[in-house]
Simulated assay, not measured.
Amino acid sequence: MSMPNRHQLVWHFVEDDNVVSALDGMVRFTAMVYSDAPGPLSPHVYWWNGRGYEQLISDL
């Protein structure tokens, strides 16, 4: 899950091995729109572990 700016929310349900390409796309998209759109929130992608969110990518 990521929320790069006030207008966009991105998520992907982990169901199969497509998660690797989905995560790559999410990281690229989040980094691109975080810096280009008004109201930036976070340049990071997060994982829901059942209790809370954990940041997956520490350096972009």
Score class of each variant (00 low, 15 high):
residue 51 R to I: 04
residue 12 H to Q: 08
residue 25 G to N: 15
residue 8 Q to D: 13
residue 37 A to V: 04
residue 23 L to A: 06
residue 4 P to Y: 01
residue 7 H to E: 09
residue 33 V to D: 13
residue 44 H to T: 02
residue 30 T to A: 06
residue 30 T to F: 00
residue 52 G to A: 04
residue 57 I to D: 06
residue 26 M to Q: 03
residue 12 H to R: 04
residue 6 R to W: 06
residue 44 H to A: 02
residue 50 G to K: 13
residue 17 D to C: 08
residue 19 V to F: 05
residue 45 V to K: 00
residue 52 G to H: 03
residue 21 S to H: 12
residue 11 W to G: 02
residue 43 P to N: 13
residue 22 A to C: 13
residue 10 V to L: 07
residue 48 W to M: 01
residue 41 L to H: 02
residue 57 I to E: 09
residue 57 I to T: 04
residue 42 S to A: 07
residue 24 D to P: 05
residue 47 W to I: 01
residue 8 Q to K: 06
residue 6 R to Q: 10
residue 56 L to Y: 00
residue 9 L to Q: 08
residue 10 V to F: 01
residue 59 D to P: 10
residue 16 D to G: 06
residue 41 L to V: 10
residue 22 A to V: 11
residue 3 M to Q: 08
residue 41 L to R: 00
residue 10 V to M: 02
residue 20 V to I: 12
residue 50 G to E: 09
residue 24 D to C: 07
residue 6 R to N: 10
residue 39 G to M: 07
residue 9 L to G: 07
residue 13 F to M: 10
residue 1 M to K: 02
residue 45 V to A: 00
residue 23 L to W: 06
residue 7 H to C: 07
residue 53 Y to V: 01
residue 49 N to E: 02
residue 41 L to T: 01
residue 52 G to T: 03
residue 26 M to K: 02
residue 29 F to D: 09
residue 3 M to L: 14
residue 22 A to Q: 01
residue 21 S to L: 07
residue 11 W to S: 03
residue 30 T to S: 06
residue 9 L to M: 14
residue 32 M to Q: 15
residue 60 L to T: 09
residue 43 P to F: 03
residue 35 S to R: 10
residue 29 F to C: 05
residue 24 D to G: 10
residue 10 V to R: 00
residue 49 N to G: 03
residue 25 G to R: 08
residue 15 E to H: 12
residue 10 V to I: 10
residue 59 D to N: 14
